[in-house]
Design a protein around this nucleic acid. Structure first.
Lengths: 145, 145
DNA sequence: GCGGTATTTTGAATGATTCAAGAGAGCAGA
DNA sequence: TCTGCTCTCTTGAATCATTCAAAATACCGC
């Protein structure tokens, strides 16, 4: 990470009203390298640079960043929560049913159809979230065991 | 539950290759009364009729029924797993962000658009799952606290 | 540089779910 | 109807992801 990138990351945190701590910088950097990482993976990625970091700090940082809108949290069924930097657009995810790998998917037809379902049982819909399930390229190519 | 319904439930289990135990009958009955119930709610519903039932049995029964295709398991983010009897159709769910209530939603435009996203990063898509988030009628009517 | 407050560290607890071993019950065949 | 095999349940404990709480620390405006 260059000096400029460091300053930039710091600025993003400050703009969100958060203090620019080493841990937060490290978590943001880790998520750039590891998209869709879970808390344990983020922790593992942060540790080499900041050996005294605690797991709880990672959870706290991720929660703060998520609240501030800098990070998006996704929770596929059967998987621990995962985090990504791509926020503000309405993209969805595809999860490999065999290995759990996650990929980004842009909505096929824009956001409109997914957001206007018929018969919502009286509920007021604010957001729609789509999870696709399938096989990642690696698992599709691998032999059945 | 009438005698006919009991026999019918028993037959459904047998047809799925499962033994018709009291616990499984009770869980199926509980899910008829409590759609979208989680394991704890199913357990609570089963207990009056079968006081010796264990929580683990409920988990085991729900897993067996899910494997057999008699029950569908849904896991909204931030909520324990929930179960429903409605299987075989491609309906989705809407979750109340305030109280966690769940409603059924039929796909607005059939299954086609949701199942054919653009740019799947090389993944092979098999199923699509939509979760809508919003407010249930009760919470929408209730004052903000 | 200092002080006040947001964050992190340390340590422990929680909730949902699963694992394992032995007791018990359902069902196919006699 | 009775028997035995096997699947299922009970009992007891463990796991994983995550959160709570109190004290130590570090960031940032002045």
């Amino acid at each position: 990470m260059t000096t400029t990138e460091i300053a930039d990351t710091r600025e993003r945190l400050r703009a969100a009203g958060l203090r620019a701590t080493d841990q937060r910088m490290a978590v943001l950097t880790a998520l750039e390298t590891h998209p869709h990482a879970d808390a344990a993976e983020v922790f593992a990625a942060v540790l080499p640079g900041l050996p005294d970091t605690s797991v709880q700090a990672v959870y706290g940082v991720l929660a703060a960043l998520t609240d501030a809108g800098l990070v998006r949290r996704i929770e596929p069924a059967g998987s621990p929560a995962r985090y990504e930097l791509r926020v503000g657009d309405n993209h969805h995810h595809i999860v490999c049913t065999r290995c759990g790998a996650i990929g980004d998917v842009d909505c096929a037809v824009g956001s409109a159809p997914c957001l206007t379902p018929a018969g919502t049982s009286g509920f007021t819909v604010t957001t729609a979230e789509v999870t696709y399930w399938g096989l990642c390229p690696d698992c599709a190519a691998a032999p059945l065991t």
